[in-house]
Amino acid sequence: MLACLVLSACATKKVQNQMQGDVYTGTDTVEYLASGVPDRVFFATNESVLTTASRDTLRKQAEWLRKNSKINVVLEGHADERGTREYNLALGERRANAAKDYLMTYGISANRISVISYGKERPVDSGSNPLAWSKNRRSVTVKAN
Protein backbone atom coordinates (compact mmCIF):
# COMPACT_ATOMS: atom_id res chain seq x y z
CA MET A 1 0.00 0.00 0.00
CA LEU A 2 2.71 2.39 1.04
CA ALA A 3 4.80 1.40 -1.95
CA CYS A 4 1.83 2.15 -4.12
CA LEU A 5 1.43 5.64 -2.69
CA VAL A 6 5.10 6.43 -3.05
CA LEU A 7 5.07 5.20 -6.63
CA SER A 8 2.05 7.26 -7.63
CA ALA A 9 3.48 10.31 -5.92
CA CYS A 10 6.67 9.84 -7.90
CA ALA A 11 4.72 9.48 -11.14
CA THR A 12 2.80 12.69 -10.48
CA LYS A 13 5.98 14.52 -9.62
CA LYS A 14 7.60 13.26 -12.80
CA VAL A 15 4.72 14.58 -14.91
CA GLN A 16 4.84 17.90 -13.09
CA ASN A 17 8.55 18.14 -13.72
CA GLN A 18 7.98 17.61 -17.40
CA MET A 19 5.29 20.21 -17.87
CA GLN A 20 4.90 23.85 -17.01
CA GLY A 21 1.29 24.86 -17.35
CA ASP A 22 0.57 22.47 -20.16
CA VAL A 23 3.80 23.12 -22.06
CA TYR A 24 6.20 20.21 -22.25
CA THR A 25 9.55 20.98 -20.58
CA GLY A 26 11.06 17.49 -20.55
CA THR A 27 13.66 16.04 -22.88
CA ASP A 28 12.30 12.54 -23.64
CA THR A 29 11.56 13.18 -27.27
CA VAL A 30 14.12 15.90 -27.96
CA GLU A 31 16.87 15.24 -30.46
CA TYR A 32 19.87 17.46 -31.07
CA LEU A 33 20.97 19.27 -34.22
CA ALA A 34 24.41 19.59 -32.64
CA SER A 35 25.72 19.27 -29.14
CA GLY A 36 23.61 21.53 -26.93
CA VAL A 37 21.24 22.51 -29.76
CA PRO A 38 17.78 20.96 -29.18
CA ASP A 39 15.76 20.38 -32.35
CA ARG A 40 12.29 21.26 -31.06
CA VAL A 41 10.12 23.69 -29.14
CA PHE A 42 6.78 23.06 -27.42
CA PHE A 43 3.50 24.92 -27.18
CA ALA A 44 0.50 25.30 -24.90
CA THR A 45 -2.89 23.98 -26.04
CA ASN A 46 -4.29 26.01 -28.94
CA GLU A 47 -1.32 28.42 -28.70
CA SER A 48 1.51 29.37 -31.01
CA VAL A 49 3.24 31.74 -28.57
CA LEU A 50 6.89 30.90 -27.93
CA THR A 51 7.78 30.31 -24.29
CA THR A 52 11.00 31.61 -22.70
CA ALA A 53 12.48 28.10 -23.01
CA SER A 54 11.44 27.92 -26.67
CA ARG A 55 13.08 31.25 -27.45
CA ASP A 56 16.24 30.03 -25.74
CA THR A 57 16.24 26.87 -27.89
CA LEU A 58 15.63 28.87 -31.07
CA ARG A 59 18.50 31.29 -30.28
CA LYS A 60 20.77 28.24 -30.00
CA GLN A 61 19.45 26.99 -33.34
CA ALA A 62 20.04 30.41 -34.91
CA GLU A 63 23.60 30.50 -33.63
CA TRP A 64 24.21 27.00 -35.00
CA LEU A 65 22.69 27.99 -38.35
CA ARG A 66 24.89 31.10 -38.53
CA LYS A 67 27.96 28.90 -38.00
CA ASN A 68 26.76 26.36 -40.55
CA SER A 69 25.68 28.71 -43.28
CA LYS A 70 25.24 25.98 -45.93
CA ILE A 71 22.63 24.12 -43.95
CA ASN A 72 18.94 24.77 -44.71
CA VAL A 73 16.15 23.65 -42.46
CA VAL A 74 12.51 22.60 -42.57
CA LEU A 75 10.35 23.59 -39.62
CA GLU A 76 7.71 20.94 -39.04
CA GLY A 77 4.69 22.23 -37.11
CA HIS A 78 2.45 19.82 -35.20
CA ALA A 79 -0.67 19.78 -33.06
CA ASP A 80 -2.04 17.30 -30.55
CA GLU A 81 -4.95 14.94 -31.29
CA ARG A 82 -7.55 17.01 -29.39
CA GLY A 83 -8.63 19.19 -32.28
CA THR A 84 -10.32 18.94 -35.64
CA ARG A 85 -8.01 17.85 -38.44
CA GLU A 86 -8.30 20.92 -40.63
CA TYR A 87 -7.93 23.45 -37.81
CA ASN A 88 -4.89 21.52 -36.59
CA LEU A 89 -3.24 21.79 -40.01
CA ALA A 90 -3.59 25.56 -39.77
CA LEU A 91 -2.38 25.55 -36.16
CA GLY A 92 0.72 23.51 -37.03
CA GLU A 93 1.52 25.97 -39.79
CA ARG A 94 1.11 28.87 -37.39
CA ARG A 95 3.44 27.24 -34.83
CA ALA A 96 6.17 26.47 -37.36
CA ASN A 97 5.96 30.07 -38.59
CA ALA A 98 6.29 31.40 -35.03
CA ALA A 99 9.58 29.50 -34.85
CA LYS A 100 10.59 30.70 -38.31
CA ASP A 101 9.93 34.34 -37.44
CA TYR A 102 12.09 34.04 -34.35
CA LEU A 103 14.97 32.46 -36.28
CA MET A 104 14.70 35.31 -38.79
CA THR A 105 14.92 37.97 -36.07
CA TYR A 106 18.22 36.29 -35.12
CA GLY A 107 19.55 36.77 -38.59
CA ILE A 108 18.63 33.58 -40.43
CA SER A 109 17.49 34.31 -43.96
CA ALA A 110 13.98 33.24 -44.95
CA ASN A 111 15.27 31.38 -47.98
CA ARG A 112 17.11 28.92 -45.72
CA ILE A 113 13.90 28.02 -43.88
CA SER A 114 10.91 26.19 -45.23
CA VAL A 115 7.82 25.32 -43.27
CA ILE A 116 5.48 22.35 -43.33
CA SER A 117 2.51 21.54 -41.12
CA TYR A 118 1.50 18.01 -40.23
CA GLY A 119 -1.40 19.00 -37.99
CA LYS A 120 -2.25 16.01 -35.79
CA GLU A 121 -0.96 13.48 -38.34
CA ARG A 122 2.47 12.72 -36.91
CA PRO A 123 2.42 12.43 -33.12
CA VAL A 124 5.68 11.38 -31.41
CA ASP A 125 3.80 9.98 -28.45
CA SER A 126 0.74 7.81 -29.15
CA GLY A 127 -0.67 8.28 -25.64
CA SER A 128 -4.07 9.81 -24.93
CA ASN A 129 -3.09 11.89 -21.91
CA PRO A 130 -1.98 15.46 -21.18
CA LEU A 131 1.74 14.61 -21.09
CA ALA A 132 1.62 12.84 -24.48
CA TRP A 133 -0.34 15.73 -25.97
CA SER A 134 2.21 18.24 -24.64
CA LYS A 135 5.03 16.36 -26.42
CA ASN A 136 3.05 16.40 -29.65
CA ARG A 137 2.37 20.17 -29.67
CA ARG A 138 5.69 21.10 -31.22
CA SER A 139 7.74 22.64 -33.96
CA VAL A 140 10.72 20.54 -34.99
CA THR A 141 13.70 21.93 -36.88
CA VAL A 142 14.97 19.35 -39.37
CA LYS A 143 18.04 19.60 -41.61
CA ALA A 144 16.95 19.85 -45.23
CA ASN A 145 20.35 19.11 -46.80
Binding site: S48, A90, A96, N97, A98, S117
Partner: peptide
Protein backbone atom coordinates in the same frame (compact mmCIF):
# COMPACT_ATOMS: atom_id res chain seq x y z
CA UNK B 1 -10.31 25.82 -49.58
CA UNK B 2 -7.84 27.34 -47.15
CA UNK B 3 -4.41 28.63 -48.10
CA UNK B 4 -1.82 29.03 -45.34
CA UNK B 5 0.98 31.52 -45.65
CA UNK B 6 3.29 32.98 -42.99
CA UNK B 7 1.22 31.50 -40.18
CA UNK B 8 -2.11 32.75 -41.43
CA UNK B 9 -4.85 30.67 -43.09
Amino acid sequence: MSFAMDGNS
